[in-house]
């Protein structure tokens, strides 16, 4: 019989191997690669911090960094709020909202790529039905993803449409895990519906909300497909998120070093923000 000390590791081995091969090794390769440069003939050489130093002087990088941070400052709280509202609606459905549950699942059933293409058609300036509608009601056609001022918000909207239903599921699970007697206790203690939400639901949803916010942040910092499909970083660089810059560097301009340097910086930013978010959303019990 095998020593029981090793048994847990044996069970964990497949998952750990997966983590190592698919997560940690690529991260290592990326961080290592960010310190290299590729010559025209494809030779790899160590360049130290050169890629990073260059990035600091690169206005495109700073602009992309600003756009990426702004994008995340808006989209993460927005998606969390929308997902929470959706979860509350499913949890305590209003009458006549059966249709809405179907609509909720729809975005999840469509792949990110396809939904971006569909939105491209839907929002199109010449043929898109939405602009047709806006003109009909007298608002006038909007450029949406083709407009420098609207493109980023359009992407935020599309991503929220796509993501909110998914994040809603986690929050819904959280809502279901709050014992109904706690609400009843609060009711008897004299809490109104709003007070129950404010003093019971909200604080008890800290953990699921922290999870959603952290996971959502990590995903949104890596937001890519709709940029690639709809805007290619434009117009005028308005949607040039760092992830798209990293993609372009690697696959369009064969500058792997710059691409990996951007990826490494992204990784660092995500780590810092995730740690901050976890701290922010720690329950008072954990803080004590």
């Amino acid at each position: 019989m095998m020593s029981s000390r090793w048994t847990p590791f044996l069970f964990l081995a497949p998952a750990l191997a997966g983590l190592l091969i698919f997560r940690l090794v690529p991260i290592g390769v990326a961080v290592g690669g960010s310190l290299t440069g590729v010559s025209l003939m494809g030779d790899l050489r160590f360049v130290g911090a050169e890629n990073f130093e260059y990035l600091l002087t690169d206005p495109q990088f700073w602009s992309s960094l600003k756009i990426t941070l702004f994008f995340n400052v808006i989209i993460n709280p927005l998606q969390l709020a929308v997902a929470f509202a959706l979860a509350m609606l499913v949890f305590r459905p209003l009458p006549g909202l059966w249709l809405y549950r179907t609509l909720l699942v729809l975005p999840m059933a469509v792949s990110t790529g396809i939904s971006a293409v569909l939105f491209g058609l839907f929002l199109d300036g010449n043929l898109g039905p939405l602009n047709g509608f806006l003109e009909w009601i007298g608002v006038g056609a909007q450029p949406f993803h083709r407009g420098q001022d609207q493109a980023l918000y359009t992407l935020i909207g599309i991503a929220t449409w796509k993501g909110a239903g998914y994040w809603m599921l986690f929050l819904l699970a959280g809502l279901y895990s709050i014992p109904s007697t706690v609400y009843e206790a609060a009711t008897i203690d004299g809490a109104s519906a709003w007070q129950r939400f404010r003093y019971v639901t909200l604080p008890l949803m800290r953990k699921p909300m922290a999870f959603v916010l952290v996971a959502d942040t990590a995903i949104n910092f890596l937001f890519f497909a709709p940029v690639y499909i709809l805007t290619s970083g434009g117009p005028g660089g308005a949607t040039s998120l760092l992830m798209f810059e990293a993609y372009r560097s690697a696959f369009t301009f064969s500058d792997i070093g710059r691409s990996l340097a951007i990826s490494t910086i992204l990784l660092g930013i995500i780590l810092v923000i995730v740690v901050l978010e976890f701290r922010l959303l720690r329950s008072p019990e954990e803080r004590a």
């Binding site: 014992p179 007697t181 706690v182 206790a185 008897i188 809490a191 604080p203 008890l204 329950s283 019990e285």
Partner: peptide, 20 residues
Amino acid sequence: LPPKERDVAMVFQNYALYPH
């Protein structure tokens, strides 16, 4: 009348304490 206006207090089987 709603519970609030009945002036009753209740002790639940699972205590229903506010965990937070």
